[in-house]
Design a protein around this nucleic acid. Structure first.
Length: 432
RNA sequence: GUGGGUGUAGCUCAGUGGUAGAGCCCCGGAUUGUGGCUCCGGUGGUCGUGGGUUCGAUCCCCAUCAUCCACCCCA
């Protein structure tokens, strides 16, 4: 097995058995984005390494040890994108999308992080995200959260996810608080556990979230973020809460909610589930008002989020929430036996596809007994089997059998066949 | 990066120091032009890989790879 060619660790094939579920999800995303008037943006999967180190943060785990980084032939350091936001900001600046304009954008695609794989965490994974630019009020924060909430509603997940929100304050307030916190913990270095000491450099705010009972006293006595919020951020946060309440979106304020990426400020939020084990965050985001400027653009407020597609798909599977109709990929299975029948079936199928473009037709290939052909038809989940034998060919008809209902088999000429199938198309459950 | 579990048929899994089994799937037959249910038959495995112990290893030992779960981190 070890010498066999196989996929890279943590990078998975999407097999035909599961692709309908992904397509269902992607269809829901498209509809949702259209509903809110968001436009899609696509950027390369490869960027200059510096883009990520300068945006995500030099000392974050993602940049320090999780990026797929290599030298291009000319010596430039390139990296596979570990997340979407930095590249969107780069593209927006580079293409002048932020020049006295507001933008509401969405993207979807694979991201890459060299982490140890586990449930809901892979080295190539997929995110769908939203980024808005040029809007500084809590109204847009509420809008992107409402957008995500509508997706849960559409997917049937509303009862299975919960919204946590917090404010990190303005970038200045947050940095001042961070410095104060680091100073505080530095005075108590001997009381910190190994994790906390490491976090002191990488993400000191995360120390507050430690599960170690020995450290709770120290944490209780630490300076509190909420006491260090600037007035504008407090007002902003209150404005967001008011709007969520008006929209009927339940939330929990989690003062320990801190995002891992350096560029966040003010609003941060997370949608979590308890149904997926330890990787329970299904969607997360927040405001990053300083990032555009940091990457060379004019100061531009921004807010966005990203969701983990694998985690959401896993959740849909766990909860068995995919509509059954999304799995049925065929309406008619054409089969037959006899001289020149295969030629006739091929032509018939093309005619049907021309006359009924939304009809899903497959022709049996490979011959075999009618019995075996019916078995294939049954397993294809097609609604109908259409049979042509010597007699039908001579009479110019088709024997149409409803494989899922009680209607008796009918002999139909081509117009009657088209009429019957058109009737089915009207009645069939929406696929997506 | 750290810890633990698991690698036997396409899938889900039994099993034994004397070179292997079930269910499902697949193929065929019972039904020579009709699927789903039932019954009968059949195909299919270098027991993850390499090494060691042994007369003999799928089983015991070591290493390695893969995979899963958790820590960490994050979507």
């Amino acid at each position: 097995m070890s010498s066999k060619l196989q996929a890279i660790r943590g990078m998975n094939d999407l097999l035909p058995e599961r692709s309908p579920l992904w397509q269902y999800f992607e269809g829901q995303i498209r509809t949702l984005m259209q509903q809110y008037g968001y436009l899609e943006i696509r950027t390369p999967m490869l960027e200059q390494t510096a883009l990520f180190s300068r945006s995500i943060g030099e000392v974050t785990d993602i940049v320090e040890k999780e990026m797929y980084t290599f030298d291009d032939r000319n010596g430039d350091s390139l990296s596979l994108r570990p997340e979407g936001t930095a590249a969107i900001v780069r593209a927006a600046i580079e293409n002048g999308l932020l020049h006295h304009q507001t933008q509401r954008l969405w993207y979807a695609g694979p991201m890459f992080r060299h982490e140890r794989p586990q449930k809901g965490r892979y080295r190539q994974f997929h995110q769908v995200g939203v980024e808005t630019f040029g809007l500084e009020g809590p109204d847009i924060d509420a809008e992107v959260i409402a957008l995500s909430a509508r997706l849960w509603q559409a997917l049937g997940l509303r009862e299975h996810v919960r919204l946590e929100i917090n404010s990190l304050g303005s970038l200045e307030a947050r940095h001042a608080y961070r410095a104060k916190l680091v100073a505080y913990f530095n005075h108590h270095l001997d009381e910190l556990d190994d994790d906390a000491r490491r976090r002191l450099d990488s993400n000191p705010l995360r120390i507050l979230d430690s599960k170690n009972p020995d450290m709770q006293g120290l944490i209780e006595a630490a300076p509190r973020l909420i006491d260090h919020l600037d007035d504008d951020s407090v007002a902003h946060f209150e404005g967001l809460k008011r709007r969520l309440e008006a929209l009927g979106i339940d939330y929990v304020v989690n003062p320990r909610l801190v995002r891992g990426l350096d560029y966040y400020s003010r609003t941060v939020f997370e949608w979590t589930t308890t149904a997926l084990g330890s990787q329970g965050t299904v969607c997360a985001g927040g405001r990053y008002d300083g990032l555009v400027e940091q990457l060379g653009g004019r100061p531009t407020p921004a807010v966005g989020f990203a969701m983990g597609v694998e985690r959401l798909i896993l959740l849909l599977e766990t909860l068995d929430l995919m509509p059954a109709a999304a799995e049925d990929v065929l309406d008619v299975y054409l089969m037959g036996q006899g001289e020149d029948i295969d030629l006739h079936l091929l032509k018939m199928a093309e005619t049907l596809r021309s006359r009924l473009p939304s009809l899903r037709v497959q022709v049996h290939c490979g011959g075999g007994s009618l019995k075996s052909q019916f078995k294939r038809a049954d397993r294809s989940h097609a609604r109908f089997a259409a049979v042509v034998g010597e007699q039908e060919l001579a009479d110019g008809v088709v024997a149409l059998k409803d494989l899922r209902g009680d209607d008796p088999q009918q002999l139909l000429d081509s117009d009657a066949l088209v009429a019957r199938l058109a009737q089915w198309i009207e009645a069939r459950p929406a696929a997506l």
